[in-house]
């Protein structure tokens, strides 16, 4: 078994016993971490495997989140903030979301569809490299501004709050919700391990390594990029959906540049292209931030910033990437010495 699969199992055990050991407050924070892990995995698929660095991935998270958020806000009629803007009945485009199952499904499918359409236009028009990053960056700005401006439906910058721990129309307590989120995250993780280990995953890595070469082997990379971007969008959407019952609040920050850049840092620290790095990076940076800010009121951003710069500078492949590198080099030394007859 590869080293990172052992780490995965260790982390899963740790996450499974976490609510039994720690307080409800800590459990809620770890529950949010689970949601962010899902989100980081979705970015790892496109950035770590296919080499597509998105600066606006939170857009897909935010769309999932706002679909779920609006569904919850309008579950019992027109919410207060809409009434303040003179909205007297639930708008037609929100009405279908009053069915909890449909809201859940659309929270995954619509981000997937948005990613598919975007991907279609971007990848078939041969947009590459930094231009993909710039387009996604602009998109993050556009979408978060749009959400802020639609105050009568989204409550603008203030966000939508008081959403309750409700999923699929059922009210859960924190522990139940934690384990549901953990189960879904684990399921998606296993799915992604299978997908990235398949020939499809190898093709994605080949796109990252040498896209031009791949076309001369009979592949059309654009189809693969659209496919993985769509799948990634669905996972990001799912993360957004699950964020609502866990956090009970959503604001335009969660659909914009803030979350988009933070998730890039998580992946850079943990390591790209092995999925375990996405999990570890999210846990390390998110919890470092929480624990530092509890202890040091002001200087924590400075400390965290310096640590992150050091990690990226000295471990460009990330923490987990570095571990895997060490294992790889040790194995290769053995191979070489066994090939050598002397």
């Amino acid at each position: 078994m590869r080293l990172n699969r052992k780490i995965d199992i260790g982390i899963l055990v740790f996450l499974a016993v976490f609510p039994l050991v720690f307080s409800a407050y800590r459990t809620e924070l770890m529950g949010k971490t689970l949601v962010f892990i899902l989100f980081a995995i979705s970015l790892d698929l496109i950035w770590g495997y296919a080499g597509l660095m998105s600066f606006g991935h939170a857009v897909l998270f935010g769309i999932g989140g706002y679909i779920m958020g609006l569904a919850r806000a309008c579950a019992d009629g027109v919410p207060d903030f809409m009434q303040r803007y003179g909205v007297t009945e639930v708008p037609a485009f929100i009405a279908p979301l009053q069915s909890p199952g449909l809201a859940f499904a659309l929270g995954i499918l619509i981000p997937g569809a948005v990613a598919a359409v975007l991907g279609f236009f971007i990848f078939f028009s041969r947009v590459r490299g930094v231009f993909f990053s710039l387009i996604t960056l602009a998109l993050a700005y556009v979408v978060s501004t749009f959400i802020s401006n639609q105050q009568q439906y989204t409550n603008g910058y203030n966000g939508i709050g008081g959403l309750g721990r409700v999923l699929w129309g059922v009210k859960f307590d924190l522990t139940q919700l934690y384990y549901i989120t953990l189960a879904l995250a684990a399921l998606v993780f296993v799915l992604c391990v299978r997908l990235t280990g398949s020939r499809f995953g190898k093709t994605l890595r080949s796109i990252r390594e040498n896209e031009m070469r791949l076309t001369f082997l009979g592949y059309d990379p654009a189809f693969f990029k659209v496919a993985v971007f769509t799948f990634s969008g669905m996972i990001a959407g799912l993360a957004g959906v699950l964020y609502i019952p866990m956090n009970q609040f959503i604001s335009p920050n969660e659909a914009g540049i803030t979350l988009s850049t933070v998730v890039l840092v998580w992946l850079a620290v943990g390591g790209r292209g092995n999925l375990t790095g996405a999990v570890c990076g999210t846990m390390i940076v998110y919890w470092a931030q929480l624990l530092l800010s509890e202890r040091i009121s002001n200087a924590w951003t400075l400390i965290l910033g310096v640590v992150i710069i050091c990690v990226v500078f000295f471990l460009p492949q990330g923490v987990v990437g570095k571990l895997l590198d060490i294992v790889y080099h040790r194995q290769m030394r053995e191979v070489l010495s066994s090939n050598d007859p002397s």
Binding site: S198, R199, F200, K202, T203, S206, L214, L217, G218, Y219, D220, F223, F224, A227
Partner: peptide, 17 residues
């Protein structure tokens, strides 16, 4: 070598391979 193997170069084929 595996990536270059003939006959598995569409998205669907890479998923079923």
């Amino acid at each position: 070598i595996e990536i270059a193997l003939h006959g598995h170069s569409t998205v669907l084929r890479t998923l079923t391979y």
